[in-house]
């Protein structure tokens, strides 16, 4: 019976994401590291064109990762082409679905930041970028995926069984 319960999990996961795609978790952390640097520069250049351009680039990167997959994302390409050949193959792989969901969460925060700059209401921009940066930093340095963890609370709050 325990197999049945876990079988359902796998089916649901597969139904959502298609065939399981596995990614190198070190690539995800490299990605988060670049994101942290980009968002730090954004914070230092608000308000100004530089911050807006960088937010646009980061939104594009998040969007590619969230909607098409991490392989189609430029930071992932840099990792695969220049970094991974030096590191060798990973010891373990992880499911692509969690980091992909977290890219979507990142996109939402970058969108809020752009809205803050456009209004202009700078506190919103600062706050949104700061939250995204904290999440990216935690992923890069500690390997924690905040975006992934928000998911269950979101589902608990929004849907009835």
């Amino acid at each position: 019976m325990s197999e049945q319960v876990s079988g359902r999990t796998d089916q649901r996961a597969a139904a959502k994401t298609g065939p399981r795609i596995l990614v190198d978790p070190r690539g995800q952390r490299f990605n988060a590291f670049i994101t942290t640097v980009v968002l730090a520069v954004v914070l230092l250049t608000i308000p100004g064109d530089t911050s807006l351009i960088l937010l646009g680039v980061q939104a594009f990167v998040f969007g590619l990762g969230a909607f098409f997959g991490l392989r189609y994302q430029p930071y992932g390409w840099v990792y695969r082409t220049f970094i991974r050949p030096r590191l060798g193959p990973p010891k373990e792989f992880e499911d692509e679905a969690p980091p992909r969901f977290s890219q979507l969460v990142g996109l939402i925060f970058v969108f809020l930041a752009v809205v803050g700059l456009a209004l202009p209401f700078e506190p919103l921009a600062y706050l949104a970028v700061a939250f995204a940066l904290i999440a990216a930093f935690l992923n890069a340095v500690f390997g924690f995926c905040l975006g992934c963890q928000v998911y269950l609370m979101f589902r608990r709050g929004t849907s009835r069984d």
Partner: peptide, 26 residues
């Protein structure tokens, strides 16, 4: 200047959160 303060605060918060998570996780 505001940006530098926000950045510093965010980085400190991230380090603190990371340490709390690491201690509690699992």
């Amino acid at each position: 200047m505001t940006g530098a303060i926000v950045l510093g605060t965010a980085l400190c918060a991230a380090v603190a959160l990371g340490m709390v998570f690491r201690a509690r996780d699992g």
